[in-house]
């Protein structure tokens, strides 16, 4: 009984406390760098698209709002022919970023994406691709994966020996 009255009194006294609400549009909140906001596609340090169209982000997406199609340039480098995120479905869970093996897909601190027309929330690759590396500035997937692309032949990766001469007779 006393505890109920105490509870009532305590809650009543909150009337005179400082409010914790940040009055957002007038007052800008602090956004931590690991905020999960608008999704972007980043580029390699050398400017190539980081996305290799492996489909893992699409598979990880719990609301299935990512779709893409893999394509390959003449040297064997994979890239997405199209890459579409339907932000009207996106729940900003960040699973795509977690799933991405090349740090291509990243969530940013931008959250002000409201639109009057839902159709405008469908972002294509042109809308997603940025010109920098975003997080993980030094990483280049093809330097560590054993696939040859333009400017990196077999055996020229960071962790690779030159290709074996199969017809060699040395033991």
């Amino acid at each position: 009984m006393i505890s109920i009255l105490k509870a009532l009194w305590t809650v009543f006294m909150h009337l005179f406390r400082r409010k914790v609400t940040v009055l957002y549009p007038e007052e800008r909140p602090h956004i931590p760098p690991r905020w999960r906001g608008r999704i972007i596609l980043s580029r390699d340090p050398d400017g190539g698209e980081r996305c290799v169209a492996c489909y893992l982000c699409a598979a990880a997406c719990p609301v299935d709002c990512i779709s893409l199609q893999a394509a390959e340039d003449e040297y064997g480098r994979r890239y997405p022919e199209f890459f579409r995120i339907n932000f009207s479905r996106c729940i900003f869970c960040g699973y795509c970023e977690e799933a991405c093996p090349t740090y291509a897909i990243q969530l940013t601190t931008d959250f002000e994406m409201s639109e009057y027309n839902r159709q405008n929330l469908v972002y294509e690759k042109e809308d997603l691709l940025i010109s920098g590396t975003g997080k993980c500035p030094g990483y280049n997937f093809y330097k560590v994966a054993g696939l040859s692309i333009k400017g990196k032949r077999k055996g020229e990766g960071e962790n690779e020996l030159p290709p074996v001469d199969v017809k060699g007779l040395m033991p």
Binding site: V11, H14, L15, K19, V20, T21, L23
Partner: peptide, 10 residues
């Protein structure tokens, strides 16, 4: 409003 105030909101 009152609920807000009592919960430290506006």
């Amino acid at each position: 409003r009152l609920l807000g105030f009592w919960q430290d909101r506006y």
